[in-house]
Design a protein around this nucleic acid. Structure first.
Length: 212
DNA sequence: TGCCAGGCCCTCTTTAGGGCCTT
């Protein structure tokens, strides 16, 4: 991880033609925000034409129609711009394995890569919001009263809500363990630690950090 | 013809099954 960007994070969300790029699905919209020092500072949003028709389920699910995509720039053009946007920053998404698959697939089409590392707000939420009955983005936003005007299942709004959820969980960790703005590496560790061990890791980090 | 995503996580588990989460 580039230490220059250690406290900078790009939160991203794709809308796609389906669930699997291995089955030929492509991205149709990318939305993202950049968090710098705990604040959202920039945003990126673009529709992209995948070169294939979007089925009626996806049109209804996202509100993105074939007509809207007919006039959009190509995936290659949009993803090149987005690759420039993310630069060397670390990356976050809700259920990141899904968005990482599509990011990797779309960038492979234009022979581009990224240097940042991914982490997942869904995995962290399952370990931090222990009483939440659901960890879907929409349910978490409602349960934690983070909601604002906008439509779920559009890329920029979902990225904005994921960023809000992330900042909320950082605040929860600060309130419970006294860890002010937990670093990305610690959040990555939480995301891949068995649930029962998370409290111990945070307690140990808090103690070690306090004695520095 | 039949199938059609895949990783995480829990439990009535680990020689497995099913729900959750993303579009």
């Amino acid at each position: 991880m580039n230490l220059k960007h250690a406290d900078t994070l790009v939160v991203l969300d794709f809308e796609t033609t389906g669930l699997s790029p291995d089955n030929g699905d492509r991205a149709i919209e990318i939305g993202a925000v950049r968090i710098v020092d705990g604040k959202i500072t920039e945003q990126f949003q673009a529709l992209m034409n995948p070169g294939i028709r979007v089925n009626s389920f996806i049109e209804g699910y996202t509100g993105i129609t074939n007509t809207m995509l007919d006039g959009a720039a190509s995936c290659s053009e949009v993803m090149a711009q987005f690759c420039d946007f993310i630069g060397d920053d670390n990356l976050l998404a809700h259920n990141a394995s899904f968005d990482q698959k599509f990011l990797d697939n779309e960038l492979s089409h234009i022979s581009r890569t990224y240097k940042g590392e991914f982490t997942c707000s869904l995995l962290v939420s399952r370990r931090i919001n222990l009483d939440a009955p659901s960890h879907s983005l929409g349910n978490l936003v409602n349960q934690l009263e983070l909601s604002e005007e906008g439509s779920f299942h559009r890329a920029l709004f979902d990225a904005q809500m994921t960023a809000k959820l992330w900042l909320h969980m950082l605040a929860q960790i600060n309130e419970t363990y006294g860890i002010e703005r937990a670093p990305f590496s610690l959040m990555q560790q939480i995301a891949c630690t068995p649930k029962k061990q998370v409290a111990k890791i945070l307690q140990n980090y808090s103690i070690q950090n306090a004695t520095l």
